[in-house]
Design a protein around this nucleic acid. Structure first.
Length: 276
DNA sequence: AGGCAGGTTCTTA
DNA sequence: TAAGAACCTGCC
């Protein structure tokens, strides 16, 4: 238990609603249970401005969660690349999403999660991942409330499940994608560590060689797992936005190397409009 | 109750 | 190279 302060733009809810993560749960107004890899955090508004109560120690916050939440990136500076008159739509979207940050998530967890995400609704994706964690993830320390929590399975742990067990997690036709990709990673045939060293273009093409990974999933892994802030995943929502507001094409050059951040603002804004 | 969902892959020209 | 169909299954 510790109190930490986060100065700058930061909204747990907006991050959660920006579609990057599938293992966040809102416990009560503004409080979240967040799972990443084999870690678990609860975070609550701490009364005073910019203060939060977190379930971890200060050293763990500093060594892991601070980076996870990407607190050292200056998003205001990134947003200042947007010209209000030239691109009023993006400007509005970015104002609406100004407290969004691109999380530093684990590439492996991100890869598997986004392979699962294809043609699935967000609740269904969450259910699937949850089942996968229960089936193959290490059980975490029993918490005080008696609920069991599980880590995201390591490549080896996932590789040890046969396809039938995988399928029972509700993966559907994605089962063979997950099995094949997992084997490539667990066997060391493909190395996510080595992908860290590739430039954006090379990294994208290596990712796309994995079974079940096309352009959209690969871009999500780049943006949300490898923190490549220029990666620009195009899902159905973004495609609609591009058609409606950028018939001449989105000015990627203008926002290089942060077009992925702009994509997040557009995504969040579009989803939000849809709800209202 | 039945269509549809944050795509990828395979098939066909 | 491009368009169209098929694909599992849980959710609303």
């Amino acid at each position: 238990m510790a109190i930490i302060s986060i100065n700058g733009e930061f909204s747990l809810r907006k991050i959660e609603e920006s579609g990057q993560c599938f293992r966040w749960t809102e416990l009560s107004e503004g409080s979240f249970l967040i799972q990443s890899g084999n870690r678990l955090l609860t975070i609550r508004p701490g009364g005073e401005q910019n203060r939060y109560e977190v379930s971890c120690s200060i050293p763990e916050w500093n060594s892991f969660w601070h980076h996870y939440f990407d607190l050292d990136t200056d998003y205001a500076a990134i947003r200042s690349m947007i010209d209000r008159r030239k691109d009023p739509y993006l400007f509005k979207a970015a104002e609406a999403g100004r407290e969004i940050r691109i999380l530093n998530q684990d590439p492996w967890e991100t890869l598997i999660s986004f392979i699962i995400s294809q043609r699935k609704s967000i609740p269904a994706i969450r259910t699937c991942i949850e089942k996968l964690c229960i089936a193959a993830g290490k059980q975490l320390e029993e918490s005080t409330n008696g609920t069991a929590y599980y880590a995201f399975p390591s490549p080896e742990a996932l590789a040890s499940l046969d396809e039938e067990r995988l399928s029972e997690c509700g993966l559907g036709y994605r089962t063979r994608y997950i099995a094949a990709t997992t084997n490539l990673i667990a066997s060391g045939t493909v190395s996510l560590e080595e992908m860290q060293n590739l430039n954006d273009e090379e990294q994208l093409s290596v990712l796309m060689k994995l079974p079940g990974v096309g352009i959209k999933v690969a871009s999500c892994v780049q943006l949300f797992g490898f923190h490549r802030l220029n990666a620009f995943p195009k899902d159905v929502w973004i495609n609609r936005t591009l058609q409606e507001h950028y018939p001449e094409g989105f000015p990627y050059r203008q926002y290089d190397p942060y077009s992925g951040v702009m994509q997040q603002y557009l995504f969040y804004y579009r989803r939000r409009e849809e709800k209202e």
